[in-house]
Simulated scan of single mutants.
Amino acid sequence: MGQGLISTAALLAGATLVLGGCGLADSHAVWPEILKVKATEPAPLEAPPNVKQLVAGKLDSVFTAGSQPTHVRVSAPVHDPRSTGWTACVRAELTSVIGKPLGTQTYRVFFNTTTIFDRRLAGEDDNCLTETFEPV
């Protein structure tokens, strides 16, 4: 019985070595091209959505209620490298809840083709200062 256990263990060890080598044939291995795993190509980007139309129809998604945005302007959409969505800068003249002018405020918005799903006050890292804006 001990002899059968040893031969079974040897057979399993051999199979493990043979099958373990299959993972080594990736796209960077030194193997003939036919044996290499092909690196996947990223999906092509779809055309950017109409950010002017999206922001104009969803001002309440960008600005708080009562801020009375005027002179709303947007930058060109840029693909967000961290997701499948897009980003743009939105700038407007705003008013506080007590009616005091807040001046020009700039937000970075995150959106897809139909929905603004996040926004935040633009910071130095957002590059909104160097963007070109067009009226909505």
Score class of each variant (00 low, 15 high):
A29V: 04
V30C: 01
V62W: 03
G21W: 01
T106R: 05
E124R: 13
Q3K: 10
F110R: 02
R119K: 13
E134L: 10
L59F: 06
R91V: 00
L129C: 00
G99F: 06
S61Y: 08
P135H: 09
A39V: 07
P48A: 12
I6Q: 13
H28F: 01
K58D: 09
N50F: 04
T130L: 08
G2F: 11
H79E: 12
L102M: 15
S75W: 08
D126S: 07
A88W: 03
L59K: 11
A122G: 13
S7V: 13
L12V: 15
N127D: 15
D118C: 00
H28L: 05
V109T: 09
K58V: 02
P49Q: 03
L102W: 11
T115R: 07
A65D: 13
P81W: 11
R73I: 00
L24I: 02
V30Q: 06
S96F: 07
L54Q: 06
L59E: 10
T115E: 13
V74Y: 03
G20W: 10
E41M: 05
L35R: 06
K38Q: 11
E134G: 06
L12A: 15
D118W: 09
V62H: 04
H28N: 12
L12D: 01
L45S: 07
V18R: 05
H71F: 01
G85S: 10
T115Q: 08
C128M: 08
V30H: 04
D126W: 12
A29K: 02
L11M: 14
P135F: 06
V109G: 06
G66N: 07
L59H: 08
S75C: 08
T16R: 07
A56R: 14
L35H: 03
S75N: 07
T16K: 06
D60R: 11
G21P: 00
F111W: 08
C128W: 07
V136F: 13
H79S: 14
T64H: 06
V55P: 12
V51M: 06
N50M: 03
D126E: 13
